[in-house]
Design a protein around this nucleic acid. Structure first.
Lengths: 210, 210
DNA sequence: ACACGTCGGGACGCAACCGTACCGTCGTTG
DNA sequence: CAACGACGGTACGGTTGCGTCCCGACGTGT
C-alpha cells in the first residue's frame, strides 16, 4: 500500500487568497447588477479576471457560492451602544440601518436575495437564520434594555415590536427607495417609541382563555 | 398605388382573447416560480399551452410583457371604506394588505419585481408610479380623513406617515415571512395610531429657518 | 361562395452558459 | 536539487433560450 500518508499541499498547490477575494468581490458586484437569477459563473470569472476553473475549485456551484457569501456577510452582529434610553438606542439603530441601506450594494442585493429566498429553500434557510438573528438581536438589545429600564412592559411582544421598528426604515429605503434624511430619524424614532408603548399592552390573548 | 384602404382584420385574423389570458396567467405563475430574472418566453408559452409566436405577436419582448402585466395589476385602486375613525380605517387597510400578501402570488411576485426594479429603469419607472399611486392613496384617504376629523395635525408628513403604516405589515409578511394573525391587527393598528400622533409634530424643519 | 389576411404551430440559426477534461506551470518539501 | 501535486487557463460537448421565418388553417366580409 502506498497509502502511507499524503503530503500536505504545498508550493503552488495552494489556493491563492487574492484570487479568492477577487471572486468574492466580483460575485457581490454581479449580484448587485444582474441579481441571483441571472448570475452566471462565467460572468463572475470574467469580471474577476480569473478562469472559470478557479471558481469551480472553490465552490461546487452557484448556490454554494452565494450561500457562502451570505454566511460571511450575515455573520457580523450589530454593535449597539447603550445610550441610556429607548429613544436614543432607537435613533442609533435607525441611523445604522439607513447608512447600510444607502449603499447600492446592500439596497440591491438584500431585496434580491430575499425575493429569491421565497423560492429557493436553501437560500431561504440560510437567510432566515441570519434574519432571525438580526431580529432577535434587535429585540433582545433594544426591547430588553427598555424593559429593564421600565420604559416598556415586560409583556411586550418582541416580534411585533421588531416589525414596528424595522419595517418603516426598510420600506422607505429598500422599497419606496426614497432617501431618509438623517434629520428625519429623530422624529421617526419618537414615533416608534410611542407605538411601542401602546404595543406594550402585551401579546394578543384571544385563544388563551383557559 | 394599391394603398386604397386596408380592410379591417376579420375572421380568424384576430387575436383570440382566451389565448391572451392564458398567457397572462402563465406569466404570473412563471413569475412567481422563477422570478423575472429567469423568466423565459419559452417557458411561458409552454405553460400556457401555446406557441411562442403567439406570445411574440402580442408583446415585443419579455420586458414589454411584464410591464403590461404590472400596469394591469397595479391599475386597480384600493377601495377603503370610511369607518369614521383613523383606528378603524387603519384596521381595514391592514387586513386588506395582510390578506393580499398572504397569497403566494403576491408575496413572491411583488418583492421580486421590486428587486428587479432596482436595476431595470423601465420596470422601476412603471413600478414607482404604481407604488406612488398606492402610497398617495393611502396618504390621501387615511391621513386626509384623519386630519379632517381632527385626529391628526394638518402638518403631518404624508410620506413618513405612510412608512409607519405600511412598513410593519410588509416587513412581517413579505420579508420576515411570518404569518400575521388577524387577531394581531387591532394591536398593530393602535400602535400605529400612536406613532402617527407623534409624527404629527409635522415635517422636519431644520433647513427651513428663513 | 370566394378571397383575403392574420392566426397558431413548428423549425431554424445564433448566442450564452454550464460543468468537465486536459495541459503546462510553479513553489515547496524531502 | 529534483520530483510532487494542485494550481490557473483553454477547449469542448450539451443544453437552453432568443427572435425570426415559413407553413397550413380558418372565419369574416364582399
Amino acid at each position: 500500500m502506498t497509502t502511507e500518508k499524503r503530503r500536505a499541499p504545498a508550493g503552488a498547490a495552494v489556493l491563492r487568497g487574492e484570487i479568492t477575494s477577487a471572486i468574492r468581490a466580483a460575485v457581490m458586484q454581479e449580484l448587485a447588477e444582474v441579481g441571483y437569477g441571472r448570475l452566471s459563473i462565467e460572468a463572475v470569472a470574467r469580471r474577476a479576471g480569473v478562469s472559470k476553473t478557479a471558481v469551480y475549485r472553490r465552490w461546487r456551484s452557484k448556490l454554494d457560492l452565494v450561500l457562502d457569501m451570505v454566511s460571511a456577510v450575515a455573520g457580523r452582529n450589530l454593535p449597539l451602544l447603550d445610550t441610556g434610553s429607548l429613544l436614543g438606542d432607537l435613533e442609533i439603530l435607525l441611523h445604522v440601518m439607513a447608512r447600510a441601506l444607502r449603499h447600492r450594494m446592500a439596497s440591491q442585493i438584500i431585496p434580491d436575495l430575499l425575493a429569491e429566498a421565497a423560492r429557493n429553500p436553501q437560500i431561504a434557510e440560510k437567510l432566515q437564520v441570519a434574519l432571525d438573528d438580526y431580529q432577535q438581536a434587535v429585540g433582545r438589545i433594544l426591547i430588553g434594555r427598555a424593559v429593564e429600564r421600565g420604559e416598556l412592559s415586560p409583556d411586550t411582544d418582541r416580534r411585533a415590536a421588531v416589525d414596528l421598528i424595522v419595517g418603516p426604515v426598510y420600506w422607505r429605503m429598500a422599497i419606496s427607495r426614497a432617501p431618509l434624511e438623517p434629520a428625519e430619524v429623530p422624529r421617526m424614532a419618537s414615533a416608534i417609541v410611542a407605538a411601542l408603548r401602546v404595543a406594550c399592552l402585551g401579546p394578543v390573548r384571544d385563544e388563551v382563555e383557559v
